[in-house]
Design a protein around this nucleic acid. Structure first.
Length: 828
DNA sequence: ATGGGGCTGCTTTTT
DNA sequence: GCAGCCCCAT
């Protein structure tokens, strides 16, 4: 009988293997390993999300079927032979008729929790899960999927009262946080010049990541003066948030952890609910997030984490790579599975990535491979400056598109810093190549949007002092700092909210002068609050704009502020969309989404345009062709990194690894001899990360635009320069001097049009110079300056079509005839 | 209270 | 190179 049972279990596994044959062996193992802690080290492009999604579906359908040693009653030779026969059936039939028989302790979907970092990832998982259950909508929607922050908000909305938060609490974003922090520093009489807010914000944010309360922080500070100062700010800041019934992003996680830690009944209810917990991008978690997942999975201990230690690039915002590196020490019974087969890139690209990352010491160690073959070599192109670099990219794109080898969307330009986007963007606009810039200033960062949100937030939560201050004088109501200070003082004395003081302004002599405006403002907000109870969010939004006078203010400003009105319209369509997607669209719900959902999610992969973004934002994405401009020491790795320690360099190297592994077919590495960035010219050697790539994988190319005067830059020479600069860099002086000659601003030879619907910008060359040429026209006798010819005097000006032909006598080079459009003249 | 002009500073970023 | 912010003048 022993033998038969053994055979039964073997054939059962074979049947599962067959149905899941589209996965590789490691992926299958990850899907079938359902119980106990599991760490999946998923290399770039190794099918991580597929594993995550199929594993959840597996748990719902079959539970622990694969590894369960359960033998059902009545297993005999005949039954085993029957199953052996089933192996020859088509997989769809095995899946439909045979596998369900093995289901063992299958799990209800609402008892599974999947946590991600971004909304984008959460949505992708949701979508792919609903495809796993095509004829059963309910199942996929019951699975609890969300970001760390949204999961915590859901918990806090239910049990926040235990932590002293009232219903309808507000979430502060980074900007709000900064404002509150400044206020806290002011109250502690700490000079912003002596202790910059940026540093304080960072310190407090890191403290919350590590679950340090103000008390604990103060204890840790010891005698350290700076830390003691920060500790005071932290305490005051926390008090301000409490008064406003608000939480910042870090609080959402930390307060949830504290809630679960300190309230056994709440903890137990969640622990017993969640039989399975999955965490994506585990390498990006901080201490608080690790604690959260440990607490939530604390009862069943079925915690699966997926991540890639080599793609940990968020240390600067608190991620601790140790979480993933020591997962198997934290959970000694954890199983570890490495996914190293890559389905994205050519072997050439993978070899390059492997070679670079091999220089890091702090890693688990993985080597990516593919069955797809070597593919094309990596192109390494040296250019004169950032403009030549941009032209190189454009030429390459245009050539491929003209030959119909690719479309615009097949190309991505990934850079280290957002500032690099500028010169590339300009060149794209001028060349009329459609492009999109992802990241940078966000829609929701615009003043009018923030103002509108602040109004809605205040309507939703009258205690929100920060938002109150933001909009009380917007539009102008003649309420300035003096009045606001008086209000704050009274609120502190009366121990009530600032809004309450405003609503009862007639009681305080200090508010005599602005009494009427304040009462009016209070009744405006109260009226809207009343309306919010009955009216849909979009209607409320319009009422708010009209009654507050905000809309009128923009209309009065005329053409200058027309764009702001358009943006408010776009915001309203966002409200409408939210109402469509939610059965019970409440104001609180909408505000929550606005606070927790960034508009980067608007990146639409189907739009046909070249995409520009930072390497950080490109994580998780892939493109057939990838350009990496600015691969230079001093830029990537950045200056700070070069002078900092080895840990920082390793993080930067992981970033390079992420950059390289975005490419599917072709990778272009670009660097320049000189570069104008932040108004300074710098001369950088090629990035050390490029020299870590075996030269056999690279094809080197000189920029054909290279100026004749440039030193014939053979790469041998470049290598020499590399060492020189490396030495110079230790001294910390690679950047050119400040005040290097500013280039004369070029007249625009294009105008660009951005389509707000898809964010694609297409530049259009100006065929007929606009009238303003005539306005800036020069008259005979005018002294002018030309970029190359120097100073001179206009002799004559003849209109030529829409252009003007000047005859100019230059001080140095004599008489020249020049067309106004091309001459780039400036008046002296 | 408000608006304009000079000065500083400046990786990376999601929530 | 440019944006954001502080200070000063109105």
């Amino acid at each position: 009988m022993e033998h038969i049972e053994q055979k039964y279990l073997e054939i059962k596994q074979k049947l599962f293997d067959k149905v899941y044959q589209s996965l590789n062996e490691k992926q299958r193992d990850a899907v079938f390993t359902v119980n106990d802690p599991l760490l999946v080290l998923a290399g770039a492009g190794s099918g991580k999300t597929t594993v995550l999604v199929r594993r959840i579906a597996f748990i719902i359908r079959y539970g622990n079927a694969y590894y369960s040693e359960y033998i059902p009653y009545g297993v005999d030779e005949r039954r085993v032979a029957e199953l052996e026969n089933a192996l020859t059936l088509p997989t769809s039939e095995i899946e439909e008729f045979i596998l369900p028989q093995f289901a063992s302790d299958a799990c209800a979907p609402y008892r599974i929790l999947a946590i991600t970092f971004t909304n984008k990832a959460a949505n992708e998982i949701k979508e792919r899960l609903s495809k796993m259950f095509p004829d059963d909508e309910a199942t996929a929607s019951e699975i609890v999927t969300g970001t760390f922050h949204s999961v915590c908000v859901r918990i806090l909305r239910r049990h926040g009262d235990r932590m002293g938060y009232r219903d309808g609490f507000t979430i502060y974003d980074t900007d709000d946080t900064k404002k509150a922090m400044l206020e806290a520093m002011r109250r502690c009489s700490i000079d912003e010049k002596l202790l910059p807010v940026k540093g304080v914000m960072n310190a407090i944010s890191r403290a919350k990541d590590s679950l340090l309360t103000p008390d604990l922080f103060a204890m840790e500070a010891g005698g350290d003066f700076r830390k003691k100062q920060i500790s005071r700010v932290y305490e005051t800041y926390q008090m301000l948030l409490r008064e406003s019934n608000a939480l910042d992003f870090d609080d959402l996680i930390m307060q949830t952890v504290l809630l679960l830690k300190n309230h056994e009944d709440v903890r137990k209810s969640y622990q017993q609910r969640f039989r399975y917990v999955c965490v994506d991008e585990f390498q990006d978690t901080n201490i608080a997030q690790l604690q959260l997942t440990v607490l939530l999975s604390g009862f069943y201990q079925n915690l699966m984490v997926v991540g890639d230690d080599d793609q940990s690039i968020y240390k600067f915002r608190g991620a601790t790579i140790e979480n993933i590196l020591s997962f198997d020490r934290t959970f000694p019974n954890a199983k570890v599975i490495k996914l190293e087969q890559n389905y994205r890139s050519t072997q050439t690209i993978l070899d390059a990535a492997n070679a670079v990352i091999a220089h890091n010491a702090g890693r688990k160690g993985k080597t990516l491979w593919t069955a797809q073959g070597d593919g094309a070599k990596i192109q390494q192109i040296c250019c004169d400056d950032q403009n030549a670099e941009a032209r190189q990219i454009i030429d390459t794109v245009n050539r491929a598109v003209a030959k119909k080898e690719a479309t615009y969307r097949d190309f991505a330009i990934l850079y280290r810093t957002n500032a690099q986007a500028q010169s590339i963007e300009k060149a794209f606009a001028r060349a009329a190549v459609p492009y999109r810039v992802i990241g940078g200033t966000r829609f929701s960062d615009r003043k009018e949007i923030r103002d509108a949100v602040a109004y809605l937030q205040l309507i939703n939560n009258h205690d929100d002092n920060l938002r109150l201050r933001r909009i009380i004088n917007e539009p102008r109501r003649k309420i300035g700092d003096k009045t606001l200070e008086a209000i704050a003082t009274i609120a502190a004395e009366q121990n009530c909210s600032q809004f309450e003081v405003i609503a009862t302004a007639d009681r305080y002599t200090a508010l005599d002068r602005s009494r009427n405006t304040l009462l009016q403002f209070a009744s405006l907000i109260e009226g809207l609050t009343e309306a919010a109870k009955t009216v849909a969010p979009d209607v409320l939004f319009d009422m708010m704009l009209d009654r507050s006078g905000y809309r009128q203010m923009l209309i009065d400003a005329g053409a200058e502020e027309a764009e702001r009105l358009e943006n408010l319209d776009e915001f309203k369509s966002g409200i409408l969309e939210f109402m469509k997607e939610n059965e019970e669209p409440t104001l609180t719900g909408f505000l929550e989404e606005t606070a927790l959902v960034a508009d980067v999610d608007r990146y639409d992969e189907s739009a046909d345009a070249v995409v520009l973004m930072t390497v950080h934002s490109a994580k998780g994405l892939e493109f057939p062709n990838v350009f990496l401009p600015g691969m230079e020491d001093g830029l990537f790795p950045g200056m700070q990194t070069v002078t900092a320690g080895e840990a920082e360099m390793e993080e930067e190297r992981r970033l390079a690894y992420v950059a390289i592994t975005r490419a599917k077919k072709q990778l272009y590495i670009l660097h320049t001899r000189s570069r104008l960035l932040y108004g300074q010219t710098m001369y950088n050697p090629i990035s050390r990360f490029v020299s870590e790539i075996p030269s056999s994988l690279i094809e080197k190319k000189e920029d054909p635009y290279a100026m004749k005067t440039a030193p014939r830059g053979t790469f041998g020479v470049a290598t020499g320069a590399y060492n020189t600069y490396r030495g110079a860099m230790a001294g910390g002086n690679v950047y050119g001097q400040r005040g290097a000659e500013a280039p004369i601003t070029q007249k625009r030879t294009y105008y660009s049009e951005r389509n707000p619907a898809n964010d694609i910008t297409v530049g259009k060359p100006l065929t007929t110079p606009k009238k303003d040429t005539a306005k800036t026209a020069f008259r005979p006798g005018d002294r002018v300056k030309h970029m190359t010819f120097g100073t001179g005097e206009i002799l004559s000006a003849k209109p030529m079509g829409a252009d003007i032909l000047y005859e100019i006598i230059f001080d140095r080079v004599g008489t020249k005839k020049l067309m106004a459009t091309y001459a780039k003249l400036t008046k002296l």
